[in-house]
Design a protein around this nucleic acid. Structure first.
Length: 155
DNA sequence: GCCAACGTTGGC
DNA sequence: GCCAACGTTGGC
């Protein structure tokens, strides 16, 4: 099993939205970056755990934990001409973009970006790399344990 | 609103 | 294949 960090702008889709979704499960749609898509396609598996990270807001940071509830499948919004995420080059036969489904496991004590940066144990987190903009990044098991145990106080 | 950093596009 | 121009991300 692998660990991930998935960014979402709370104005677009927040942890509250996921909590309110049927079965606390929703499609992680709208990823339009090949590297992030390939992570979903090639490396994400059912049951993987991910931090739900709020970006592009006043208080960027981790707000909860979710689980991959369905492996990668075509993102419906690429076919929807009315969607912000419409891609005229995508076809049903040859979809370009994928998404997974995620289910909320739990809200967690909030861990800010500033807090994450304070800890040398997390210095190698992909999220914190200079210039990183990837919306889906891997998290090492040791980093996951440090954040969940030491910073969130979870078992 | 600013701007650094990155990804994509398209002319050549 | 190169690379300049442009668009986007996302923290501040």
């Amino acid at each position: 099993m692998r660990y991930w960090l998935m960014k979402s702008e709370p104005d677009e889709f927040s942890i509250d939205d996921l909590e309110r979704a049927p079965g606390r499960t929703a499609a992680w749609f709208g990823v339009r970056n090949y590297q992030a898509r390939n992570f979903m396609r090639d490396a994400m598996h059912l049951g993987d755990l991910a931090f739900f990270y709020h970006s592009g807001c006043a208080q960027p940071g981790i707000a909860g934990i979710c689980r991959v509830a369905r492996g990668a499948y075509p993102d419906a919004t690429q076919f929807d001409a009315a969607s912000l995420y419409f891609d005229p080059q995508a076809t049903l036969e040859r979809p370009r973009w994928l998404n997974v489904d995620v289910q909320l496991v739990r809200r967690t004590p909030w861990v800010s970006l500033v807090e994450l940066r304070r800890h040398p144990e997390l210095a190698d987190m992909r999220l914190l790399a200079r210039g990183n903009r990837l919306s889906i990044t891997p998290v090492e098991p040791a980093q996951w344990d440090f954040i969940t145990r030491r910073l969130m106080g979870l078992d």
